[in-house]
Design a protein around this nucleic acid. Sequence first.
DNA 1: CGAGCGTGTCATGCT
DNA 2: CTAGCATGACACGCT
Length: 689
Amino acid sequence: MKYLKPWWSDGGGLLHLTILLSLAELHLDLDLDLYLLLPPPTRLWDELLLASGPTSSAYALSPFPASGVWGRADQLHPKGRELDPAAESAGRLLREVRALGVPFIPRTRVDAWLVHSVAAGDADGAHGLLGAAAAASAGGVGASVDDSSQAAPGDGGDPRAAASSPLDAGEEEKAPAEPTAQVLDAAARQENEVLGERHQEVGHSSQNEENEQRVSAQEQKLQHKNEDAREAADKPDREAEKTTESRNERSLNGTDTAFSLEDLFQLLSSQPENSLEGLLLGDTPPVSINDGMNSTYNVNFSQAISHDVNLHEAMLLCPDNTFRRDPVARTSQPPQEPFLHLNSHTNSEQTLPGTNWTGFLPLVGNQIHLTSEDLLHDLDINIFDEISLMSLATEEGFDPMEVPQLFQEPDSDSGLSLNSSHNSTSVTKSNSSHSMCGGATGSSSDLESLSHHDLEGAVGGYYPEPNKLCHVDHRSDSGFHGDLAFQHLFHNHTYHLQPSGIESTSNSFSRYGKSQKIRGRCLNDTDRNLSRDERRAKALHIPFSVDEIVGMPVESFNNMLSRHYLTDLQMSLIRDIRRRGKNKVAAQNCRKRKLDIILNLEDDVCNLQAKKEILKRERAQYNKAINILKQKLHNLYRDIFSRLRDDEGRPVNPNQYTLQCSQDGSVLIVPKELMTPGHRKENQKGKTK
DNA sequence: CGAGCGTGTCATGCT
DNA sequence: CTAGCATGACACGCT
């Protein structure tokens, strides 16, 4: 097994910068990496890689390092194999980083994990490194990772760190990540602090109030997440999604400086003597960059470039309203033209990201000295495949062809006749991905101009859809479902079912997911799991979730509608969704009630049958007692007549005489022929007395 | 293949 | 009048 060389060794910094330039050209926040400040530490990286030893498994270098940490996926993963040597080497690396006097500010969870892993692997260096990090972050920028450092060695780390590495999924299956609650706490706290910082920035910026509200909501989310961090240890999917949201939010604030591609290229080309190494060494003086919009940035690369970037996450921010641009311009993707022009000679052997990264990166053992152009060529072909695919994928959430088809459905659920042309199943396996994800390239509906923040958390929002992302998003594909909280199944028999929509939808999801698998083959996996209303809402880019629409009180609902500009179609659909959702809940309640009534009636029947049995038994007992009394009376009668004698001393025949009790209690012997029926009756009454 | 069941949806009446 | 609820009826899919 050969070792892969880090991207930036032998000029890999230029590669990394290229990614950043591509980000800048996409008008994303240029969140440059710490290691850009450093000279290409080939030796260090070789040490790092060699220390881990060869393995037979996939050798995955994270294509879009979230924090400038390159290495094998299983090394990045906290539960990965051979973690300790890697952590040791990482510790040496970080110590050398410290020696260079460059502040290492853990801004992401991968950063935090790296620091933690170093701390875990080197107990001595733990507090030193972290102290250095804390000291470097004096001024409040850095986030405390002390808690993460105190986690058990070999443990800890964030599932999101693993999520940033595409090929890590398989490793994770073998050794599922079990981040400690401390680490999650620390990570959540860290993100909280970063968010708070961002919040302040937002306050100083000219963003509108919605931004602040969203940030507040995000803070609440994060606080809640902080509280539930321990419980969330087994929910990496949701965590990863929250990370994406927070990152999105971070970028939405737009406080990070965005550079244009041309500016940076001019910078590079105008200072060839400096070379990237000089630039990377940090001895480059501040450079003025004109962004073409009458503002000039004084960029000191040794100071300004201190952030890390996750290209994948940044890509997901394409529909960001902060950097919203003309959809036509976006779809035509002119910004990539310079790079595409640079790489007009396409590499036929390029491999799709996520398929085989060994073909993507130069091998360490080869030690080929590549020129910048070569590196750019090697990188850009693949990177811009990614960029184009991801940008297309993020815009694929809306397919204009989907709308009429969705609304052509009959009212019943049978109307799913979506014949969308994109085939998601082939996306993940075929290399000719351009045509696959490009189905929605030209979609420039006005609905698309809905701001991204409005779509956050919405049904049709820009959730990363695994298949749509063309193998780029390797976060857990269950994150979406997790966020929809479909795991909340309430089987209580109360009729106050505020979240019953969740219950019902979850039931219907599991139920209709199967049927839609048949009818909606053209839909991707996520769409397949959506209900009809959710697909409609997604198609119309309705910025609310179905649960919100249905479960919200009418006042809040009307306020919510009034706060957003919605077309008549959207309003109509929203009200229909609400009506149907309410009625669905009502129908469920009605059926439950009916079922309860039936059950109660069955119980009543059982109770009445039991009562009947008891009464039957009582009647039998009474009859038995009556018979006993009759028998006793008969015996008494015979006994009396056996002792009776007439005037002549002869026994009295009981067939000719009868006993009659008078009112005063005296007993008379009366011949039967003298007894009229009425007397006989009275006599019988008297007898019974 | 039909029956039974669960579910969503619509229409309607009532509050 | 509007919104919501309750319920019968129907359609659909699954077992």
